Amino acid sequence: MIEIRKLRKQYGSGSRITHALQEINLTIDKGEIYGIIGHSGAGKSTLLRTINLLERPTEGSVFVDGVDLTALSTKKLQDQRRRIGMIFQHFNLLSSATVEENIAFPLRLAGTAKSEARRRVGELLALVGLTEHGKKYPAQLSGGQKQRVGIARALATNPHVLLCDEATSALDPQTTNSILNLLLDINRKLKITIVLITHEMQVIRSICDRVAVIHDGQIVEQGPVAEVFLKPRHDVTRQFIEQVADSVEIDKPDVSGAPAQDGTVLKITFLGETTYEPILSRTVQQTGVTFSILQGTISRMKNTPYGQLVVRLQGPRDAAENTIRLLREHGLDVEVYSNGLV
C-alpha cells in the first residue's frame, strides 16, 4: 500500500546541512492504522509530509498503491494526491466558509458537479456526527467539532490513505478519545489506511496496529504495537512507554538481597486471549510447585488484551524448570529474574 525506500531529507548546503530524515524504510499495509511517534524535532512531521510529497525527499522513493510519487509529473502528482487525505493539528479550516463549504472545498477543486458535491457533503456530515452543524462557521464550533470537519474534508474525494498530523494534540483528553474512536470507525467502515504521527503513546496504544519510533531523523524501532510495548529495545521507546499511566512494562523487582531458598522469580507476559486463561494455575498444579504473585498488570492495546505477572515459584528445581518449559510451550514469554530453587 505505502512503501518508503531509502528515504533521506536534508535542508541547507555545504557545512550548514541539516539531516531531517536518514535512510528511512517503511512498509504500511492496506487498511491498517500505522503510528509514527517521536519527540519534537525528531522528523515525524517531515516524514508524514513526504508520503504525499508536500515535502519532496532529497533521495529515495515513496510508493502509494504501487505508484512511485517521486517519479510523477506535477499534473499526475496532483491527481494522485486526491487519493491521499490529510488532517492537521490546528484544523486549517476556512474561517469565512460554513462547515458544508469547508467539506465541499476539495470537491470544488476537483470539478465535482454541485449536486454530487451536496450529496457527498451530506454523507460526510452524517459520518462524522455533524449533520445539524452544516450551516455553522468554524468560530461557532468546539475544537473537537472543528477536527471532525477537518476529517470530513479530508475524506471528501474518497481517498485510499488518510494522513493525520498530530490530529489530537490540541484537544482535551475526552475530546481526544472521541476523535480516536471516530478514526477507528472510519478505518473499519471505509477500509482506509490511516497513518498518524503523535508524541503521545496513549494514542498509539489506543488505535494503532503497528508503530515506528523516530529519533534524530532515523527509525530506531518498529513493529506491532503490542510487541513494541511489551519488549521495547530503544531508550526513546521506553521513555514514551513511561508516559502511559498504567505502563505495560512493570518494574523488575529487587531480588538481590533475597536468600537463595526464596525460590525462582519469573516475569510472565501474556498476549491475546491467553491473558484470560488460567494457564499458570493449571501448570503449577501439573508440576507441583507453588507460586506467589509479586507484581501484575492487565490491560488492552486496541483490540488486543495483554498482561504481565512477576511471580515467585517455590519447589524442587526440576519442577520449576518443567513449569517454565510448559509455560513457554503455551506461547507465553517467560523471563527468569533469579533462580534460587534447589
Results as ranks from 00 to 15, higher is better:
residue 228 V to Q: 07
residue 215 H to Q: 15
residue 341 L to I: 05
residue 165 D to G: 11
residue 157 T to S: 05
residue 319 A to N: 14
residue 323 T to N: 02
residue 334 V to T: 03
residue 106 P to H: 00
residue 121 V to S: 13
residue 273 E to N: 05
residue 294 L to Q: 12
residue 14 G to T: 04
residue 103 I to S: 05
residue 320 A to K: 03
residue 265 V to S: 14
residue 309 L to K: 08
residue 193 T to S: 11
residue 26 L to H: 02
residue 6 K to T: 01
residue 220 V to S: 12
residue 212 A to T: 07
residue 57 P to N: 08
residue 138 P to H: 14
residue 46 T to L: 11
residue 107 L to F: 08
residue 272 G to Y: 00
residue 53 L to P: 05
residue 7 L to K: 03
residue 338 S to T: 15
residue 61 S to W: 05
residue 274 T to H: 03
residue 209 D to I: 04
residue 304 T to C: 13
residue 15 S to E: 15
residue 247 S to D: 08
residue 159 P to D: 09
residue 329 E to Q: 14
residue 219 I to F: 03
residue 107 L to T: 02
residue 17 I to C: 03
residue 248 V to R: 03
residue 166 E to A: 06
residue 37 I to H: 10
residue 164 C to F: 09
residue 31 G to N: 12
residue 339 N to T: 02
residue 181 N to L: 14
residue 152 A to C: 06
residue 46 T to W: 10
residue 133 H to D: 10
residue 100 E to R: 15
residue 340 G to E: 10
residue 148 R to Q: 06
residue 100 E to F: 11
residue 42 A to V: 04
residue 87 I to K: 04
residue 77 L to F: 12
residue 123 E to N: 15
residue 299 S to Q: 06
residue 207 I to G: 03
residue 246 D to W: 02
residue 105 F to A: 10
residue 27 T to K: 12
residue 123 E to A: 13
residue 229 F to H: 06
residue 250 I to D: 14
residue 127 L to K: 13
residue 162 L to S: 06
residue 308 Q to A: 14
residue 212 A to V: 04
residue 153 R to M: 00
residue 229 F to T: 04
residue 265 V to F: 11
residue 188 R to S: 09
residue 204 I to C: 07
residue 201 M to S: 02
residue 194 I to V: 10
residue 65 D to S: 15
